[in-house]
Simulated scan of single mutants.
Amino acid sequence: MKAKIIMLSALGVASFGLTQAANASWDSGACSGGGPAPCIEYNDGTNTYHFNGDGSHSGDWHGHPGGGDFQFTGYTDLGCSLGQFYCELTLTGDVRKFQDGNGDWRIGVRVNSGSVAQGSEGDNECSNISVGGFPWYVGDYPNDHTFGASSGMLYTGTSSVYTGNVGDIDVTYTVFGLPISLVTGGHMHEVEYHNSNSSFRFGGTRDDTIYVDGAADNDSGCSVSGDLILQNGDYLNLF
Rank of each mutant, 00 (worst) to 15 (best):
K2P: 11
K2D: 04
K4H: 08
I6S: 14
L8C: 02
L11T: 13
L18W: 13
Q20R: 13
A21C: 00
A21R: 10
A24S: 15
D27Y: 08
S28C: 00
C31P: 06
S32Q: 13
A37H: 15
I40D: 05
T46F: 11
N47I: 02
Y49E: 01
Y49V: 10
Y49M: 04
H50Q: 06
F51V: 10
H57C: 01
H64C: 04
G66N: 04
G68T: 10
F72G: 07
F72W: 13
Y75R: 04
D77T: 15
G79C: 01
G79Y: 01
S81W: 01
L89E: 12
L89W: 07
L91N: 15
T92K: 14
G93A: 14
G93I: 13
F98A: 09
G101K: 05
G101H: 02
I107Y: 08
G108K: 12
N112L: 13
N112S: 14
Q118A: 14
E121N: 12
G122Y: 06
D123G: 15
G132I: 07
F134S: 12
W136H: 14
Y137W: 15
Y137V: 06
V138C: 09
V138W: 14
D144Q: 13
D144R: 04
H145R: 03
G148N: 15
G148I: 02
S151G: 06
M153E: 11
Y155C: 09
Y155A: 10
V161G: 09
Y162R: 11
N165K: 04
V166E: 09
V166G: 07
D170G: 11
T172D: 10
T172G: 01
G177M: 07
P179T: 08
S181N: 14
S181I: 11
V183T: 12
G185W: 03
G185Y: 05
M188N: 08
E192G: 00
Y193K: 11
H194L: 10
N195D: 15
S196W: 02
S198C: 06
S199R: 15
D207F: 04
D207L: 05
T209S: 09
T209L: 05
A216H: 04
A216L: 09
S220P: 04
G221S: 03
G221V: 03
S223A: 15
Q231W: 00
N232F: 02
G233K: 02
D234G: 06
N237F: 03
F239V: 10
